[in-house]
Structure formats: C-alpha cells, structure tokens
C-alpha cells in the first residue's frame, strides 16, 4: 500500500511533498508525471503527450493544456453567471484561477521541466509579493486601531 502511495505521488522516489534533491542547475527528475507513475494509463498518457521527454512537451500536449485552460475559464464564467454561490463564489474563483496559474507557469513557461533555480526565484518573489499584499490588507483593516 505504501509502495503504491509512493508511486502514485512519485516525486523523485519520495513523497510528493519532498522536493527532489536534484542540484539547482539540474532539471526536474526524468519523466515525472503530474500523478506519478502509480496509475499506468496516466503515466502512458503523460509519456505520450511529452514524448517521454523531461525537457518539454509536444504540440499535442500544449493543445491539451490549452483546452483545459479554456474549460476552466468557461466554468468560471458559468459559475459566476448561473450559480448563486454567495460566500462560496470568491473561494471557488480563487481556486479555479490558481489552477490556471499553475498550468500556465508549470507547462507553458516550462517550470515543470526546467531548472529548479528558476522556480526558486519566481516562487521567492511570489512569496514576497503575497506578503506585501497581505500586509496592505491588514494595514487597512487594523491600522486605525493602532492609531487610536
């Protein structure tokens, strides 16, 4: 069972939460799929779409990502117009938007296939950007209490 779990969430032979211990100038581990190689049909589909390459995908692979992005956008607009979710609307939109963000950054910008160092730079700046963002929101929310 543990073996199956590890294979399913394969990430350089360890759990998916454990970043691969490749050198920072090395690319991601070879043929690492989004769901690992625990589910054979998914592994086969991944190998087919990326031509079993860990450097980049094939044109077909990018078209598949483009179709998924379009479907997510349609779901967003559909949910906005026809689902009256109340307080759930914002979390749903953020999750869908995060999905699109990850697909574009990971596959179109090749971060999934590229050297880890680029991912570190981009992620570090994202963390600083989000920290600034949260600080601004907190400042506006609680800043007046500090003044009083």
């Amino acid at each position: 069972m543990a073996n199956f779990f590890n294979k399913l969430l394969y990430h350089d032979g360890r759990g998916w939460w454990d970043l691969p211990r490749t050198q920072w100038q090395d690319p991601n581990p070879e043929m690492e799929g989004p769901f690992g190689d625990g589910i054979i049909p998914i592994k086969k589909a991944w190998d087919f779409l990326t031509a079993a390459s860990y450097h980049h995908g094939t044109p077909l692979f990018y078209v598949v990502v483009g179709v998924i992005l379009s479907i997510i956008t349609i779901v967003e607009v559909w949910a906005f117009n026809w689902l009256f979710l109340g307080g759930l609307l914002i979390p749903l939109m953020l999750v869908l938007s995060l999905g699109k963000f990850v697909l574009v950054v990971g596959f179109f910008m090749h971060l999934k296939f590229d050297r880890k160092y680029y991912a570190w730079i981009f992620t570090a700046c994202m963390v600083v950007g989000i920290a600034l963002f949260v600080a601004l929101l907190l400042l506006l929310e609680f800043g007046h209490q500090v003044q009083q």
Binding site: Y62, V63, V65, G66, L69, S70, K100, V104, F108
Partner: peptide
C-alpha cells in the same frame, strides 16, 4: 489564453 497556447 489562446495567444499563450500559440506562443508555446
């Protein structure tokens, strides 16, 4: 979004 696909 489609322009991004065209780019890649």
């Amino acid at each position: 979004l489609m322009s991004s696909l065209a780019m890649v």
